[in-house]
Amino acid sequence: MTTTEISRSVLTLRPDFATIAAWIKPGSSVLDLGCGDGTLLHYLGNKLDVRGYGVEISAHNILACMQKGINVIHSDLESGLSGFENASFDYVILSQTLQAMKNTENIIQEILRVGKEGIVSFPNFGYWKNRLQVAAGHMPVSSNLPYQWYDTPNIHLCTLHDFEQLCQQHQVNILERRVMNHDKKVAFFPNFFGILAFYRFGHAA
């Protein structure tokens, strides 16, 4: 597959998956935590010859992965990644799940125990529309945060600054950051204009 073909096929992928896929080296090994129906892994396997496993807890998603022929392991991320050896993957991905986890600090550490690099994406709570809703006296509800305060699974929302502070506290070395507003990159005041944040990180040198 040529680079052009790869970048063209990336375009057909959900924008947030395309951002992640662009960071993955062809032929690498990937563990996708909370892999959903396996779309990203399916893409990575077919287009980038990536060998990988998904981790899921939902029966519906496990079945969807198996129907796609994706390796999927039923496991609860809240209890860590004890089924996986140290440094056994090139990348461990946690896509839009961090904010819904109870053991946030633990999963970041587990990602870097099991993976050489981690890739995490999450909705930026510092996005101006969120701030506006809070300023107006309400918890934010938007296409990226579609829940009411009482039924949201998102219990650990954060801003870009918050996440970067956590990384610093845990000796996590941020290698690359990408902030998106729908399918556009955000370079100007990302903590204010960015909707989705993506980080690629490794161990502190």
Partner: peptide
């Protein structure tokens, strides 16, 4: 998994 074999697991 330790042997990097293809595996799917469900409970």
């Amino acid at each position: 998994l330790d042997n990097k074999l293809n595996v799917s697991y469900a409970e």
